[in-house]
């Protein structure tokens, strides 16, 4: 039973993965926020002992396979932002949601820059301006992600 409740974490990541690979029209595609990163950041902030680097690593590999990107292209930035988060979570947790959102924006931008950088190395540099739209969308929806996941966590009695 004590292990069963952690299933919630996996289920929420699975839901995030579905949102990541749900087919959308091309023009909406570039504004798709990084649901996986948002969900991972939340859990590593709430349960840093449980959701850490290894979690980020395996989630990243699954994300890379589903998106058809290089194995590691999304893993590397996820590792980086989760590492940053593991060092800062105690200070971030006490901030107001709006302030947290700015922190989230920074993390998502780091993620996006690395993904775009690798695309550039592979010879298909992404369009400059629209490429950075997704992290801003991610910042805007963070409060909702936070509240929803927090309620789920409380219902599942995770602490």
């Amino acid at each position: 039973m004590s292990q069963l409740k952690y299933l919630v974490i996996y289920l929420s990541l699975l839901a995030a993965l579905v949102l990541m690979i749900l087919p959308l029209p091309d023009w909406v595609q570039i504004y798709r926020p990084n649901w996986i990163a948002l969900t991972l950041i939340y859990w590593s902030m709430a349960l840093p002992k449980r959701v850490g680097l290894w979690f980020a690593f395996f989630t990243g590999i699954i994300l890379d396979t589903s998106l058809g990107t290089l194995l590691g292209q999304h893993t590397l930035p996820l590792l980086l932002i989760i590492y940053i988060n593991l060092n800062l979570y105690q200070r971030i947790r006490v901030l107001a949601l709006a302030q947290q959102a700015i922190y989230i924006l920074v993390l998502l931008l780091i993620d996006q820059v690395i993904v775009g950088w690798v695309e550039g190395i592979l010879g298909r540099p992404p369009p400059l301006l629209t490429f950075f739209a997704a992290p801003f969308i991610g910042m805007l929806i963070w409060p909702w992600v936070f509240v929803i996941l927090r309620d789920i966590r409380r219902k599942a009695l995770l602490r």
Partner: peptide
Amino acid sequence: ATLQALFLIVFSIAMMVVDH
């Protein structure tokens, strides 16, 4: 944690190169 992060990051860079 830092060592682990470094190790995993280097590992994923290596993975990208190998995959490419």
